[in-house]
Design a binder for these strands. Structure first.
Lengths: 346, 346
DNA sequence: CTGAAAGCGCTTACAG
DNA sequence: CTGAAAGCGCTTACAG
């Protein structure tokens, strides 16, 4: 049964005693074929179990109906939902998705991008790795005439299409909510500041403090605490201070917030009464921890769809446009137990 | 900058005043080119930023260096790790991965498979959906001369390559462990019995009871409790029985075990002292629940690699072999708090 | 070792 | 409306 020949348009043509070009036209529903022959061809194609050959089609047309995606990790909720959203729209449009993981390594990311360029995909959708140092590989994408859409973690200075969240606004809301719950010494766990999203979240934190006239305390701002382990480590340090914080905004992720939670629990700081905790990105687990974690939902699946829509509705239509649009999706604060005090002081 | 022409072997040939065939040979490192011209060609290729065209290559060779994967969901740990494992090996071999989700729908699964056949991928790697009703689409894959590897959730009767876990053995170990912890009325949350993996886990449960001469109690065996919600529902029912269970083996997943845990907590059944809970597949969250959940690790990343190795080391070499191998990976019981009693009765 | 030619399966101007 | 031909970018027997 194996390795049998697939039927081609020539098989159909031969059987029907017509030209292959007519078969091609009929299959593409061209108006330049009579309805009767078209019908006959379609019927025969079905009989012979004909499947068009993507490779030949794309080679001939000089395009590849494939979109490449590069994400740091596919097993984080945020990214897997992005992909689910992308998938829905791209498949509907007859395009394929090739997914690569950078594993947060810049080097691996460059490799992924090379592979995708190599395949001459129509468009590359990317969220850069935490190690991001330069934009050369992204510039190269553009230079090759391949469309580029950055999302979430974007290289700000590089002009491309972008789909992002308003991180600053979300962070401001999160911290304001904590202040309203009576927290006053709110620590910030920063992400690596080479990424714009983490700079923006820090800005949002500072803005909220300013708006509510809460003083900024430098020792409560911890750099580079963006994984569960680093979040835990930062928390051990914070909770050992002479004047420990009464809340922690883990601005990078729920993973980091989880680290906070575990250390707080083990050091006997009761969450949320003695210590408030807020995370970011609404990972599935944030709902099931004890207590559940207040976080920011980024509407990831919707974001994935927005990216694909951007490609199919705008970019594909005007591939030579140099007007780069940025789509911003408003995230939403999800208040859960970890910041809801029974008795709000003061 | 956009839509510029990519350099082809003819560009290199023209520049060097040689035949395109020689360029091709040099690029493929054929021995039929002199070392000096080879060097020259490679240098020029680099200068002109030449990238081979996959489409043309694959079309010419009559193959597509792509492997298709169909999984129920990519955002479950088990599957995302399988994919990470696959990725590692396939990229190393210069192959691409196209990933599809069936979303547990048989119809969608059939669609995914059609799309992949359509693309004439070299191999389809699949874990069937829970709705699995028939194997027609899989038979079709084989009929099209495309390699097929089933993993984890396999259609047992269909002869193909398979990479599986020894589910029965793992379930026996899990239940034996619970019996050793003094649990005697161990409920079973079954998965849909149309899937072999769930039949096997049930068999393992029954085997453990038999080995330890623990009587089987029919009312403690709950059908179709394979999601968090169904697990919760089943648990409400079980814990309301005149003689409730003293343990629950959520044989389907940690999601189901999580449902058990939440209901147990809210109904005041203390885990693990009053109620033992064991899940399956070692989702990331199972470590962070309160208490943490005993579960079975399936070595998912290793399994992903094993699948890819099977393809590259065996199937690809002997594509017409009809000897189908089954690779079995031994899963491992991970004992955590949810089954570790402080005082083992009796 | 090198070149000219055929062909993978398709689409699309060109002619009629 | 239909056909013959060229060509997308490559590889590979065939000849020399």
């Amino acid at each position: 049964m194996k390795n049998q020949k697939r039927t081609t348009i020539h098989d159909i043509a031969r059987k029907l005693n017509i030209a292959a070009s007519s078969v091609s036209r009929a299959l593409n529903n061209s108006s330049k074929v009579s309805a009767s022959t078209k019908e006959l061809i379609l019927k025969t194609a079905k009989e012979l179990n004909y499947k068009q050959n993507f490779l030949a089609q794309n080679l001939r047309k000089g395009q590849n109906q494939t979109i490449g995606v590069v994400v740091p990790r596919i097993n984080q909720n945020f990214f897997s939902n992005i992909i689910a959203g992308l998938e829905e729209v791209t498949y509907k449009n007859g395009y394929n998705l090739v997914i690569c993981q950078s594993n947060e390594s810049h080097e691996r990311e460059v490799q992924c991008v090379e592979t995708l360029i190599h395949q001459h995909v129509s468009c590359i959708v990317i969220s850069i790795s935490v190690e991001h140092t330069n934009d050369d590989h992204l510039k190269n994408v553009l230079a090759q005439g391949i469309q580029l859409i950055q999302f979430d973690r974007v290289a700000q200075d590089l002009e491309t299409f972008k789909v992002i969240n308003d991180n600053e606004q979300a962070a401001t809301e999160a911290v304001s909510h904590m202040i309203n719950q009576g927290y006053r010494r709110i620590a910030l766990l920063e992400g690596p500041q080479n990424l714009a999203i983490f700079r923006q979240r820090k800005a949002g934190y500072l803005r909220a403090l300013e708006q509510h006239r809460v003083p900024v305390v430098e020792e409560l701002i911890i750099k580079n605490a963006w994984t569960k382990e680093l979040g835990a480590k930062a928390t051990r340090k914070l909770l050992s201070l002479p004047k420990p914080p009464d809340a922690v905004f883990a601005s990078t992720s729920d993973f980091s917030a989880l680290g906070v939670l575990e250390v707080a629990n083990s050091m006997g700081f009761k969450v949320p009464d003695v210590l408030g905790v807020c995370g970011y990105s609404n990972e599935a687990f944030s709902e099931i921890t004890t207590p559940s974690i207040t976080t920011v939902d980024q509407y990831s699946k919707k974001m994935g769809k927005a990216i694909a829509d951007l490609y199919f509705e705008e970019i594909k239509e005007a591939p030579n446009s140099t007007v780069y649009k940025t789509v911003s999706i408003k995230p939403k604060l999800i208040v859960r137990s970890s910041t809801q005090r029974k008795n709000i002081p003061g």
